[in-house]
Design a protein around this nucleic acid. Structure first.
Lengths: 163, 163
DNA sequence: TATTGTTATACTCTATAACTATA
DNA sequence: TATAGTTATAGAGTATAACAATA
């Protein structure tokens, strides 16, 4: 074991800085998201659920009888991946692939009662954990953050002014 | 081709809503990040560069002579992945693996002049594109967003109040 | 001919385990 | 024995291409 002569307790290397990258919104956002993701994944793991599957369930619960193609575009993924996700949900009896009358190609996806209940339960747990991450923010600041994120997602539209 | 009887121009399915998921900060943040990532990736592709490699370059430029282990912890990834990323940078002569006197196990990573210049060039381009995504926000709102993201990354500390 | 769903496959990012050479 | 770096491998998430059934 070697030098430790710096005043602060950093082993080996003096303070590392990422100030050059902090200039980038994407970098800051990814780091923040990583913290949120860790918390959310912890909740989902307890229900043997992963983020894409949970998201799909949420879309289906909120949009009864939508097709896999519609789900695909809502999730911004590819049809082929949607198939696997819907398989997962169907195998757990959280949703049903109902047939559409008038178009035998398509499914009308519908959450089962079990699926609706599980989604609500998880959503409440996630909301609680995410709330803790925002504990230092005021209600107005939380609304502002939501507004900023929505504006950026849309590619730079003016955010709804909150204050 | 079938029904199109709804007033709005949505094919097949009426308006799809993700309001149940919009409640989650993580969902909103991931969607916003996806927009930013697309823009950033577009810039990086033009330089045959990907996000993790670019991030590593930024850390090395800002922290001359740091070790791969230090880089690993700065990027929050694993040592094994750092090796491949550093290989990529070294093969393009953007950084050098210098030897450390006194510890023949470790490297002192250092950006070459070429690496420093490329990083600065890309950083400016990224900043410009990201700026466009924030075009609808005031300067104070941008600062507030940065502050909120930093607070969340840290797990819910109070953000530096900006207004 | 176009669309819905499907399968197989590949690529990126990240994580784990076992190894080497030094300390 | 612990640490720095390395290799091989595996997993999750996402993307592309080709296909069958139906429109």
């Amino acid at each position: 074991m070697s030098a430790h002569e710096n005043p602060d307790d950093q082993p080996g290397q003096d303070q590392i800085t990422d100030q050059l990258l902090r200039r980038h919104m994407g970098y800051c956002m990814k780091r923040a998201y990583l913290t949120v993701e860790t918390v959310v994944t912890g909740v989902l793991n307890a229900h043997d659920m992963r983020i894409p599957v949970y998201s799909a369930l949420g879309i289906i619960v909120g949009n009864p009888r939508l097709s896999q193609t519609a789900l695909t575009s809502a999730l911004n993924i590819e049809r082929s991946n949607t198939v696997v996700i819907v398989d997962t949900l169907e195998n757990r009896d959280l949703i049903a692939r109902n047939r559409v009358e008038g178009d035998r190609r398509a499914y009308a996806l519908e959450a089962t009662l079990k699926g609706q209940r599980l989604f609500k339960k998880i959503a409440d747990e996630v909301a609680e954990k995410e709330g803790a991450l925002q504990a230092g923010m005021t209600s107005k600041q939380r609304d502002a953050l939501t507004s900023f994120l929505a504006a950026i997602e849309q590619g730079g539209t003016r955010p709804d002014a909150v204050d």
